[in-house]
């Protein structure tokens, strides 16, 4: 403890009563206003860019949006081209991602929250998940290429719907696990204790009481994970999704080309089919030089964004129900 600051400073004039005490207030207040303007300005810039983007996409694409566009296969002539192949591919990939990632993600979350006794293992998985969340999506594409396209080729059939869906499932798994854990943690401990007290086993309590209570929270997480997967492009390009697909997966050969029953009628035709998805179709059209294809891209973006907004609205509705119950 050396000398206190006041001893080191040169002697100060006595504090005057009057305007001097204001401590240069006008200048400090104007700095305040400047800072506030900057903060709101930054917010306005972000919103303006979003508005510009939406306006641009709508003004370019709305004119191109038609029944013909939704129901046609890609074509070399932009005015004949459509997105039905990409739509069907996106639907199939999303269905398989959901079928794979939902049970695995929820199971992993259940284990970590309800069953795990080993702190060390839980901790390892926690660090691992937070690290996986920081891995770029294109790296998942490289993993999918090596593991699903080549190593598991007898099962996936190479560059197919199944290989793409499994890659995306791994990509979104951390999101579902984290959401499941949060939803389970929000279930009051009393519910578990009551179930155990009347003689239920741990699993009976979880299955009959805890999971139903946490379900809307879990579903919110799953939908948000799917809405992340639906816009992913890079990993699917890496595993080799096609960019020109004049057919749809499955065995429905006439309109509307997409029939969920195909999953039971001809599962192999569905999962082992080459495919494209909406973002890749958009990528393909954007990278062509002709202006007419850019309009197609804008129209496809509108369709993709509408799907995203719908999914997010469902998630928000579920989240609100979840909040009311909690």
């Amino acid at each position: 403890m050396a000398a206190s600051p006041s001893e080191l400073l040169p002697p100060q004039p006595p504090v005057a009563k009057g305007p001097e005490f204001a401590g240069n207030l006008p200048q400090r207040y104007s700095a305040d206003r400047l800072f506030q303007v900057a903060a709101w300005g930054a917010t306005a810039i972000a919103i303006a860019v979003l508005g510009w983007l939406l306006f641009d996409v709508l003004s370019q694409g709305l004119g191109r949006l038609s029944w013909q566009f939704l129901t046609s296969f890609p074509s070399r002539r932009p005015e004949n081209a459509g997105i039905v192949g990409a739509l069907a591919g996106t639907f199939w990939v999303m269905i398989i991602v959901a079928v794979v990632a939902f049970p695995v993600g929820v199971g992993a979350g259940l284990y970590l929250e309800e069953f795990a006794t080993d702190r060390w293992f839980t901790r390892l998985i926690e660090i691992n998940i937070s690290n996986l969340a920081g891995v770029p999506s294109i790296i998942y594409g490289l993993l999918g290429l090596a593991a699903f396209v080549r190593l598991l080729e007898p099962i996936t059939g190479g560059r197919t719907v199944l290989a793409g869906a499994l890659t995306l499932a791994l990509l979104v798994l951390p999101i579902i696990i984290v959401a499941t854990r949060e939803a389970l943690r929000a279930v009051p401990e009393g519910m578990r204790l009551a179930g155990l007290a009347i003689g239920g086993s741990r699993w009976q309590v979880v299955w009959d009481h805890v999971l139903p209570a946490a379900l809307s929270g879990i579903l919110t997480g799953v939908i948000l994970a799917l809405s992340r997967a639906i816009g992913e492009t890079a990993p699917l390009i890496t595993i080799g999704a096609l960019t020109f697909v004049p057919f749809t997966p499955g065995c429905t050969e006439n309109f509307p080309y997409f029939n969920p029953a195909d999953l039971l009628r001809c599962p192999v035709n569905v999962v082992q089919s080459p495919f494209t998805v909406m973002p890749i179709q958009i990528f393909n059209w954007v990278s062509r030089p002709q202006k007419a294809f850019h309009e197609n891209a804008a129209a496809a973006i509108i369709v993709l964004m509408v799907m995203l907004v719908l999914m997010n609205s469902v998630a928000i509705i579920l989240r609100n129900r979840f909040r009311q119950k909690g």
Binding site: V57, P279, I282, V286
Partner: peptide, 11 residues
């Protein structure tokens, strides 16, 4: 945050 990156690429 939810805008897909390919849309930002287009933009």
């Amino acid at each position: 945050a939810g805008v897909p990156s390919v849309v930002f690429g287009y933009f």
